[in-house]
């Protein structure tokens, strides 16, 4: 039967991945439904198993798997906390500019070189630029990043931003292993 073969293939392809995704989805289902009586288990487990098998068929590429080391996740936690602080600072900066009687803006575009290699750190870094003081990532093409700044200081400040160094560290930590 073809379903059996599907199951066997997907389990053979990536057993640990299947188990991780299965437990994540099941935990999600139990959190959202809010109670864990036998009806919920009965509905949840078959559906989650079906989704897991389906997922394995969709993403069967070995090279696309993300590997996260322990050091990387610690660094990323640090990055995230700094990001929250930066977001609060960004909002106060924007509020100051918007609410002052004459708005001191000197907007413009700046092109930067970003030497991050992997796509994921690049995307996260671009998003954090968008969320922080007076800068928006307009375009990202290879290692070329186009940024719109609200004032000249904000736009030029991105070049020597300390978050970039943390992101470089995260990438370095991934490369050793």
């Amino acid at each position: 039967m073809s379903f059996n073969r599907l199951l066997r293939d997907s389990l053979k392809r990536d057993p640990t991945g299947s188990i991780v995704i299965f437990s994540l989805l099941l935990a999600f289902w139990l959190f959202i439904s809010g109670c864990a009586d036998w009806q919920h288990w009965l509905t949840g487990i078959p559906l989650v198993a079906f989704l897991t098998i389906f997922w394995n068929q969709l993403f069967s590429d070995e090279r696309a798997k993300t590997k996260i080391t322990w050091r990387q996740s610690k660094l990323f936690l640090r990055y995230f906390i700094f990001l929250l602080v930066e977001i609060v600072k960004a909002n106060f900066a924007v509020a100051l500019i918007v609410l002052s009687p004459k708005m001191n803006i000197s907007p413009g575009l700046i092109v930067l070189k970003v030497t991050l290699e992997k796509d994921m750190p690049k995307a996260i870094y671009a998003n954090s630029i968008t969320m922080t003081p007076g800068t928006i990532t307009v375009d990202l093409d290879g290692d070329r990043m186009l940024i719109h700044g609200m004032t000249r200081e904000h736009a030029f400040g991105v070049r020597s931003w300390y978050m970039y160094d943390i992101m470089k560290d995260i990438e370095e930590a991934g490369r050793i292993d």
């Binding site: 909002n91 007076g134 928006i136």
Partner: peptide, 16 residues
């Protein structure tokens, strides 16, 4: 004044 600057205000303040 223009679209890019408006998005600065909207995109950041909505997040926080």
């Amino acid at each position: 004044p223009d679209l890019f600057n408006r998005l600065h205000a909207l995109g950041k303040c909505d997040t926080l």
